Simulated assay, not measured.
Amino acid sequence: MNIKLVTTTYQEDNKNTFESSKAFSVDRGVEMKVVNIYPEMEYQTFDGFGGAITEAAGYTFSLMSEEKQKRILDAYFGSNGNRYNLIRTHIDSCDFSVGQYAALEDPEDTGFNSFSLERDEKYIIPLLKEAQQMAGKTLSVMLSPWSPPAFMKTNGQRTEGGSLKPEYRQFWAEYICHYIKQYRNKGFAVDMITIQNEPNATQTWDSCLYSSEQEKEFLRDYLYPSLMANGLEDLEVCIWDHNKERMFERACEIIDKDTDKMVQGIAFHWYTGEHFDAIKLVREKFPDKKLIFTEGCVEYSRFSEAGQLANAQMYAYDIIGNINAGMNSFIDWNILLNKEGSRTM
Rank of each mutant, 00 (worst) to 15 (best):
G307H: 00
R302S: 14
R250C: 04
H269F: 01
L232F: 12
Q264T: 11
D258C: 11
K289Q: 12
R250D: 02
H275L: 02
D241L: 01
E245H: 15
E299H: 13
P225H: 00
A310H: 14
D332K: 11
T272M: 09
S301N: 01
W270G: 06
E253M: 09
R220W: 13
I279Y: 02
T272N: 03
R302L: 15
K290H: 10
E249S: 13
H242T: 14
M314D: 07
I266W: 04
Q308F: 08
I266R: 01
T272K: 15
L235V: 10
S304P: 10
C238E: 05
A312L: 13
H269A: 01
A312G: 15
V263Y: 01
I292L: 13
R302A: 14
G265Y: 11
E305W: 14
F268H: 05
K280G: 03
G326E: 04
E305K: 15
I279E: 03
E284W: 08
E233Y: 03
D288G: 00
A316T: 11
D277C: 08
L219K: 03
L235K: 05
S301R: 14
D332F: 09
L281A: 12
D277Q: 07
G231L: 08
E217D: 13
E253Y: 08
Y300N: 06
C252G: 11
M327D: 02
E249F: 12
G273P: 12
L281E: 13
D277V: 07
I279Q: 02
V298A: 09
M327L: 11
F248C: 11
H242A: 12
E233G: 15
D277R: 03
D318S: 11
E299G: 08
D234W: 05
F276Q: 00
R250S: 14
G296H: 05
K285M: 07
